[in-house]
Structure formats: C-alpha cells, structure tokens
Simulated scan of single mutants.
Amino acid sequence: MIPWLLLYLFGAVHSDLHKLLSTLPQYSDSRIPPILRPLSYDLQLQLPLSEVSDPDIPLFTGRCVMQFEINQQIGPESAFISDSTSNRARIKFDIIMLDHFENVSLVYNGNELEIFNVQLTDDSMELSVDQPVLFPGRYTMTIHRYKGLIGSALYYRDAGEHAVFGSHLFPNRAPAVFPTYLGTTEKVTFSITMVHPIGTNALTSGASEAYPRKIDDNWQVRD
C-alpha cells in the first residue's frame, strides 16, 4: 500500500503543480537578446548641475553616440504590409529615470532614418521609425542631449571641505547614466568625456592622455 500511496501523493502534487504553472502569466518580451548587439559608446557627461525649479536636486546632462548591430530583421518578414500590421519598426532600450531627450537620430548605411517617435517611461526608451522594417546591419544612434539624476549610478559624497562625485556603473545601474540593451552580456568599447567645473579634477580608471581644456569661465572638458 505504501508505494501506491506515495504514487498517489506524487500524482496529486504533480497535478497541483501543473495546474499552478499553467495559471502563471507567461513571460513576454519582444526583445530577443541576439537581435541587437551594442558595439561601442561615445559618452559626454556634464556635472554637477541642478534643477531650475528645485536647486537641491542634483542633475547631470549627457550626450550619447551608440553603435550597435542588428542581427535579425526587426519587423514583418513579408514585404506585404496589411492594415493590421504596424507600419513602424521599434527598438526598446533600458533607462532609469532619464528624460528630456533632444535631437535623437538613427543612421543606417550612411542614411539617416526618419524617426516617428521616442517614447520614454521610467525604465525604458522605445524608438520607432517611420518604416515597417529595420534590416540587419550596423546602426548609429545619437542622443544629442538628455538629463539624469545624481544619486544612484552617479553619486555625491561630502569629503570634508570638498565634494566628490563618483560612479557605480554596474550593469544594473548603468541605465541611470545612458541607454543600454541589457539583453546582451558582451563587452563593448567606451569613450567618455567629462565636462566639469573649473577648479575640480576628473579622474578615471581608464587611460587618459589629454589635459583639461577650458570651455568658458566656468567649465572645462577632459577626454
């Protein structure tokens, strides 16, 4: 009787587990990791700034040039586009509280594509172009200006008489500084330029051979 009892109990548990799993919401994400692969980032960050409406909120502004490769066609496979099919291909990137995106462009094979819309939420940036398909190949996306908050990936510390701003650019925090595509795990190359106040120093763990260049009476830049 014991083996039958164990079999019955296992069957009951298996049945309940199958029922539970069948009722769970199915995970759905239109971004399949192999479709898009970042290749390089060229970043320019200016800090510290403050919100005009609330000077106690520290901000930074950024400029991002991202090169990436699309490995599979994004959009319908057929050349025939029905009325029920979206006529605009979309790409979604990860962000954390970045906003005020200005002058966003996307270039493919030397041709600038017409952008229909850039939709922002607290954790995503969706770029839609005014064409139904994005073909495989290399693309360059440029965001000429955007804003972000200092406090997570970029942070502030009071070091006695001096203020220190640092960075925690781990994968889960990097979207608070620049748009990322977290579906991939491959390494990419970075070029970072810092615009910071005159009288301060910008330090990095990467190689830097250039001296700061004065922009105006208040700001200097270091590549």
Rank of each mutant, 00 (worst) to 15 (best):
G148R: 06
G148W: 06
T61V: 13
R88D: 13
E126H: 08
V118T: 15
I115N: 03
S53I: 04
G75F: 07
S86T: 13
E77Y: 11
A89C: 10
V65D: 02
S78P: 08
I96W: 03
N109V: 05
T85P: 02
M66D: 05
L43I: 06
R63M: 11
I150N: 01
F135W: 03
I74S: 09
G137L: 04
H100A: 11
I143E: 02
Q131P: 01
I115W: 05
I91Q: 10
L149P: 00
S124F: 15
L149C: 03
T121I: 13
M141K: 01
I35F: 05
V118N: 14
I70E: 05
C64E: 08
L36D: 00
I81Y: 07
I143G: 02
S128C: 11
L98P: 11
Y146W: 11
Q73M: 12
D83R: 08
D130M: 14
L45V: 12
D123H: 12
N117E: 15
N103F: 11
G62S: 11
N111I: 07
D42M: 01
P48I: 05
D130W: 08
P38T: 01
E112C: 03
Q46Y: 03
S50C: 12
Y139G: 04
L98Y: 10
V133Y: 06
I57E: 06
F60D: 07
L59M: 12
E69T: 10
P136F: 04
L45G: 01
Q131D: 02
G75H: 01
R145H: 13
K147V: 15
I96G: 06
T121D: 11
D83L: 09
N117R: 14
K147G: 04
E102L: 12
M141Q: 03
S128Y: 12
I74A: 08
I150H: 01
E69Q: 13
K92H: 04
C64R: 00
R88T: 14
N87P: 02
R145K: 12
V52R: 09
R88S: 12
R31V: 10
S124A: 15
